[in-house]
Design a protein around this nucleic acid. Structure first.
Length: 282
DNA sequence: CTCCTGTCCTGCCGGC
DNA sequence: TGCCGGCAGGACAGGA
């Protein structure tokens, strides 16, 4: 469930802990997550300084001094728990990897469903990994706009909702923010991606940026509380307009008393889609 | 190529 | 109260 905003918040929470800090120990509580760690993981990571860290899509990259980088992915249920003092760390179920730092800080990677992973790659090769080689533009970056999005959607027969979940179209958008962005730009989720007018795509591109940035801002404001760095949705949830709100009126219709409104839920590609039938017409 | 389906995994919720 | 079936969902692999 963590999408771009949640991952960005996790990354920002990690920044002060990781920057220039040496990893003293890396405890692997199981041999694998989505991928096996391999025999060398622990040895390559331990006693290395973190040189820098970044986010790409829903992934966090942690670059080490020895020319290796860790790719972290939170999957569905991944959480990152940060403790300024290792003494404060109390192990919990599904804490699969625990790092201790020279500063005394401690970071635990917890993932109940284990769709997430930690993977080691050579730092100069990370972009060639399967997760990134075909990944689309960063929606909050300078290289994303209506023109770029229109190009990515051109000729696509699949629905716009499913197209937005395709990380090759745009990076970091998941089920929640796809629904929210379509709502904001008033596009029906089942509309064929390749048949949306240019002005509507412009609107959609703006909506994607706004929905993501708003969520980051909301998360960022709660960052001073480290407990919220775990990637959980707690503090994002109240701001959803349609996601997980089946049967409830959407905020815009609620404002406009003339509109009859009940948020609908449909299933596309096995995933729930929520939308407002009054505002989002085919 | 594009599109679609199966798969991984566990917590949670509703039904009986 | 407890058990169990079904569902949720990111992203990859592989088939159509």
């Amino acid at each position: 469930m963590p999408e771009l905003p949640e991952v960005e918040i996790v990354k920002r929470g990690l920044d002060p802990v990781l920057s220039g800090n040496k990893i003293l120990s890396c405890v692997l509580n199981r041999p694998n997550l989505r991928y096996p760690f391999g025999d060398e993981f622990k040895n390559i990571v331990e006693n290395q300084k973190v040189s820098s860290q970044e986010r790409r899509g829903k992934y966090i990259l942690i670059h080490l001094d020895n020319g290796y980088s860790m790719i972290w992915h939170l999957g569905m249920s991944g959480r990152v728990k940060i403790f300024d003092h290792a003494d404060d760390y109390a192990p919990e179920k599904h804490d699969h990897v625990v790092f201790a730092f020279e500063s005394g800080a401690c970071v635990a990677f917890n993932d109940a469903r284990r769709f997430g992973f930690l993977k080691l790659v050579k730092s100069d090769k990370w972009a060639q990994e399967v997760h990134f080689s075909k990944m689309g533009p960063e929606p909050l970056g300078n290289h994303f706009n209506g023109e770029i999005l229109a190009q990515a959607l051109r000729g696509k027969s699949s629905s716009i909702k499913q197209a937005l979940l395709d990380q090759r179209v745009v990076a970091g958008v998941g089920n929640i923010y796809a629904c929210e962005a379509l709502y904001m730009s008033r596009i029906h989720p089942e509309k064929a991606a390749g048949k949306i007018s240019k002005p509507k795509i412009e609107e959609l591109a703006r909506a994607i940026r706004e929905v993501l940035q708003t969520a980051i801002d909301a998360g960022g404001s709660s960052l001073k509380d480290y407990k919220h760095t775990d990637g959980s949705l707690g503090y994002f949830q109240h701001m959803f307009n349609v996601y997980n709100r089946e049967g409830k009126p959407c905020p815009i219709c609620l404002e406009n008393a003339e509109n009859e409104c009940s948020v609908a839920r449909i299933v596309q590609g096995g995933r729930s889609t929520f939308y407002c039938p009054t505002l989002q017409k085919k």
